[in-house]
């Protein structure tokens, strides 16, 4: 019986206090926040020379990936989708290619690239294009241009270009940054947890 008591006590304490730290060791990218809300009826088609580009500001160093939701009904696009990242002077900084076969309809897709160590507070533009796709292979990206959603759009999402026209707002994107160390992630997770736990209201039981 003693063994069982010790085993269960140790298991539960491990589960509550240490296991989250073990899980945190597996985190390779940290998102800069939640995906901004968008209206699923507002979409832009991308195929052939019809591309979309988005200007944004990276708030942190080590920019490593950019994610957004993409529609690909019935996996109709099986061509390459090319993601190109440019710096402020429109020099190519990174390029990532994924195949339409791997883009399930409506999925949140992450374009992962080598970390950019000095990305903090720098302005970038990315372009999404599927040059070999015809009108029948169109993929669609969601965008936010006006209405309440635009007001809730974070200010680091600056503007987007579609059909050679520049518009305010843009794609509901999430930026991902490579953490400097595992310890940093663990520290941040527990600090955040205990700051919420200690907030006055949560103590009143």
């Amino acid at each position: 019986m003693k063994k069982l008591i010790w085993f269960t006590t140790a298991t539960i304490l491990f589960l509550v206090f240490l296991f989250p730290a073990v899980l945190a060791m597996g985190i390779k990218l940290i998102p800069n926040g939640d995906q901004p809300g968008y209206n699923s009826d507002q979409r832009l088609g991308v195929y052939g020379i019809r591309d979309i580009s988005q200007k944004f500001i990276s708030e942190k160093a080590n920019l490593s990936a950019i994610g957004t939701s993409i529609r690909n009904p019935n996996l109709q696009n099986k061509k390459d989708i090319i993601f190109t990242l440019f710096d402020e002077k429109m020099n190519i900084v990174r390029t990532t290619i994924i195949n339409g076969r791997n883009v399930e309809d409506g999925n949140f897709i992450k374009f992962v690239f080598e970390p950019i160590f000095d990305s903090k507070n720098k302005t970038y533009t990315f372009e999404i294009v599927s040059p070999d796709a015809g009108p029948g292979d169109t993929i669609e990206v969601f965008y936010v241009e006006n209405g309440i959603s635009l007001q809730s759009m974070p200010n680091w999402i600056v503007e987007y270009t579609y059909d050679k026209k520049i518009h305010k707002g843009g794609l509901p994107i999430v930026l991902y940054f490579k953490p400097t160390s595992k310890f940093e992630i663990i520290k941040e997770i527990y600090t955040n947890l205990f700051s919420r736990f200690q907030s006055l209201d949560s103590q009143k039981i």
Partner: peptide, 15 residues
């Protein structure tokens, strides 16, 4: 599994 720990951090969504 993973998401049972989302109170600790929503970063676990990355796992």
């Amino acid at each position: 599994s993973i998401s049972l720990f989302r109170i600790y951090s929503t970063w676990f969504d990355m796992l």
